[in-house]
């Protein structure tokens, strides 16, 4: 699971009030190179919850992200930041570990890079 996907994931358990961001408790993190597409990153930043990404990056012991993003990212002037974002969002994979909901404290295991978000019927 990339941090990009993690940034979109929320808990849907019945009655959960604060369902985002899920806390990552990683036990195995891998880096996997992927081709960078600056325009895509810039477009996706609008939908990003940056504080959640910072938290996730810290949990995965990733450094280099700025504390705050500039209001408008520019392809040329912010090249370094975009590179860092690409690295954090697209190249960091949480392979094994756990996600924990901040609201209802439900735990979601991550196995083989796949988070298991299935609930039991009484949680729906």
């Amino acid at each position: 699971m990339r941090l990009f996907t993690h940034n979109h994931l929320a808990c849907v358990k019945k009655g959960c009030k604060q369902n985002f961001p899920l806390t990552i408790v990683p036990s195995k993190v891998e880096m996997e190179e992927s081709e960078m597409n600056s325009d895509f990153i810039i477009r996706m930043v609008d939908r990003l919850d940056y504080p959640a990404l910072l938290k996730a990056a810290t949990a995965c012991k990733l450094t280099g992200l700025p504390d705050k993003l500039p209001e408008r990212l520019d392809r040329k002037t912010h090249e370094a930041i975009i590179k860092q974002l690409h690295n954090a969002l697209m190249q960091v994979h949480v392979v094994e570990g756990e996600l924990a909901c901040p609201g209802c404290e439900r735990k979601y295991p991550i196995q083989n890079g796949v988070p298991n978000m299935r609930l039991s019927e009484d949680e729906v």
Partner: peptide, 14 residues
């Protein structure tokens, strides 16, 4: 990326 979930329980996305 892959996520294991039951679509009938709702999609887990913001």
């Amino acid at each position: 990326d892959l996520v294991l979930s039951d679509m009938g329980q709702g999609l887990n996305f913001r």
